[in-house]
Amino acid sequence: MRRFWAEKIVPCRDSLLAITTGLVFIGLWELLPALGVIDPFYVSSPARIVKAGQWLFAHGLWHDIWVSLGEFTLGMLLAIVLGVGVGFLVGWYRTLNVMFEPFITLLNATPRIALLPLIILWMGIGMQSKVAAVFLGAFFPIAITVMKGVHNVDETLLRCSHSFGATDHQVILTLVAPSSVPFLVAGLHIAVGRGLVGMVIGEMMAAQAGVGFMMSRSASLFQTDKVFVGLILLAGFGYFLTEVLKLFEKRIEGWRPL
């Protein structure tokens, strides 16, 4: 009975509580502006947001979404490919590590948003500058965590590998790569967030399309409802990516060294 309670009732009750909290929040958000307690001009309301959403989807929001998705995907892919590559090289080769590690750490500590005006100057207000913004946000966390992953290969496992006469190539494939994967996933978590920030700020600063662009334009026209539509899209997208990564993390949980 106790077991039944712990396994069936408690999780059920927990998710019910979470859903109720969300519903109450949405309810209050709808109710308070309707009662005139708060001004919907500033905070909008769920019904208004749905209506604005419908209007936006009928009037070119898909285009903004595609532009943003394209920028994000391209920037992320570049960051993953180059981040894993650079992270591995700098982690594995001592000379490269000595040469570039301080450089990477320094750049990672710099607020890269400050580079955006320069990037826009160099690349214009098209997609390229936003791809670069996403890349700059996502590259460093990936490169740094992969580098740490390579450094963290278990010393005894290395000895074991070498005792069987493993070549560098074999050590990399059988030890370094698998034991860096959990680190890479941790880096991706950070990279997704930073990449999204880069994309949105880039679009808000200078762009011709994109969800961030739509949001800043709407805000300057005092169309709060539309700004919230963009906000919800971004939040949903970020949440989705985080959940995907969590699923992946669960699969490789046992990979961590003993």
Partner: peptide
């Protein structure tokens, strides 16, 4: 001395 097994 430690089993030095590959956890994955």
């Amino acid at each position: 001395q430690s089993a030095a097994l590959l956890p994955w």
